[in-house]
Amino acid sequence: MDRRSLFFGSSPLSQVHPAVWLVAVFLLAYPTFASDFFTFQIGAYSLILGTIALSLMMLAGYGGMVSLAQLTVAGFAGYLVAMLGDNSVGVMGLGWPWWVTVPVAILAAAVFAALIGFISVRTEGIYTIMITLAIAVAFFYFVRQNYDLFNGFTGFAGVAPPTFAGVYWRDPVPFYYLSLAVAGLFFIAVLYSARSTFGLSLQAIRDNPRRMRAIGFDVTLHRVAAYFLAGLIAGSGGVLMVWFNGRISPGSVGVDVAIDILVIAVVGGLRHPVGPFIGAIAFVLLENFAIDLIDHERFNTVIGLAFLLVVLFSPDGILGLWNRFAARLRFRRPARLERLEAGGAD
C-alpha cells in the first residue's frame, strides 16, 4: 500500500480518507473549546514550527537533501519584515505597508534558499548537512555583530501583524486561523506537488541522480528549484514566527533552534507532509509542560532522549509508529474474519 493511503485516497476530494476530514473539523473547531493559551501558545505555535519543518521535509523526504538552514531562511524573512515594516527600536523600520513587506520578505527568503541550494546541492550526505550548518552559523554571527542593519544582539522588537478587515491578527483566535490557513495551504501544495511531474522527478533524482542525469534531467536545476520552493514555505513560516513573538533577534536563528527544526521533522516523520506537524505538536507540548516535571535547563536533555528513542525504535518517526500499528490492524482483521467464516472460535 502506498504510504499516503493511510491519510489520503485518490486525488479527488470525495475520496479523501475520512480521518482527514475529522482532523480538519477538529482543527477548525479547536479555538471554540480551547483557552487562549492553548489556541495561541500551543495551536498556533505548533502550526508555525510545523510549517518551517515542512520545508525541511520537502527537501529531505522528497529530495534526499537534509538542510540545517531552513530556520535561517525563516529568520531571514522575519528580519526583513522587521526592517522593511515597523518596529519599536529605532533601527531600520522603513514603514512599508504589510502587503508589500510580506511578499518581498517571502520572495527574498526563497531566493536566499535557492542560493543556499546552489552552493550545497553539489554535495551529498554529511557534506550537505555541514555546508547548510555552516551557513546557519555564519548568519547567526552576522546578524549578531551587525548593528547598522540587524541591530546586533538586541534585534528588533515591536513587530506586529496588521489590523486588516477590522481584525487585529495577533489576537489568539485570528492568529490561529491565519497560521492554520498558511499551514494548510502549504501542506496541500507539498502533498500534491509530490505527485506532479516535478515532484516525481525530484524523488527519482533522490533515488538515483546518476541515472536521471544520464536520461537528460538537469539534476542541479531540480534541486535548486526544490530549495526555492522550500524557501517559500520557510519564509512564510518566518513571517508568522516574527508576528508570533513580536520580535526577532540572533537567538531566534541560533544553531540550537535550527537543530530543533531537524528534530521536529525527524520525530514526526519525513515520509509524509503531516509528519512535521505531528513532531511540532509533540515538541511544543514538551516545551511547555516538561518544565513542570523537570528543570527548564534540562529541557534539551529530554528532547535529545525523545529523539534517540524515536530514531531507535521507529526511523520513520511517530508517523511510522502509527503506520505500523494501522498495518497490524489491517492484517489481523481479515484473518479474524476468515476464522469466523470458517466457524472457528474467536
Rank of each mutant, 00 (worst) to 15 (best):
R336F: 14
V266S: 01
I126K: 00
N208A: 15
M83A: 09
L319Q: 03
N151M: 09
F299V: 07
L180T: 03
V111Q: 06
D218C: 05
D295S: 15
A157Y: 12
Y127E: 10
G166S: 05
M130P: 01
G238K: 09
F76S: 13
A335Q: 15
I294Y: 14
F38A: 12
F325A: 12
V137T: 00
T301V: 15
D256R: 13
R144S: 07
N288I: 01
V100L: 15
A181T: 03
F331W: 14
V266P: 01
Y227V: 02
A258P: 01
G85A: 03
D171C: 00
L308K: 00
G254K: 12
V73Q: 06
I291E: 07
L232H: 09
V267Y: 07
A258K: 01
L285C: 04
F150L: 09
D207T: 12
L286K: 08
I215N: 06
G279C: 01
R330W: 12
E338Y: 10
A183E: 10
A280D: 13
T39N: 10
L59Q: 06
V25F: 07
I303W: 00
V266Y: 11
L149P: 06
L319M: 11
I294V: 15
R336S: 02
L191C: 03
L305A: 15
M212T: 04
M130N: 01
G166E: 13
V89Y: 09
W21C: 00
D256K: 09
T128M: 08
G85I: 09
S249V: 01
P273L: 03
V159M: 05
A74H: 11
F8D: 02
L262V: 15
F156A: 01
F112V: 02
A82E: 08
Y176E: 02
G117R: 09
F7W: 11
L178Q: 06
L13Q: 11
V91F: 14
A113D: 08
F198N: 03
P162D: 06
H17D: 12
M65L: 14
G50Y: 09
G63V: 01
Y176H: 11
I119N: 01
Y141F: 11
P162R: 11
Y227N: 04
I131H: 13
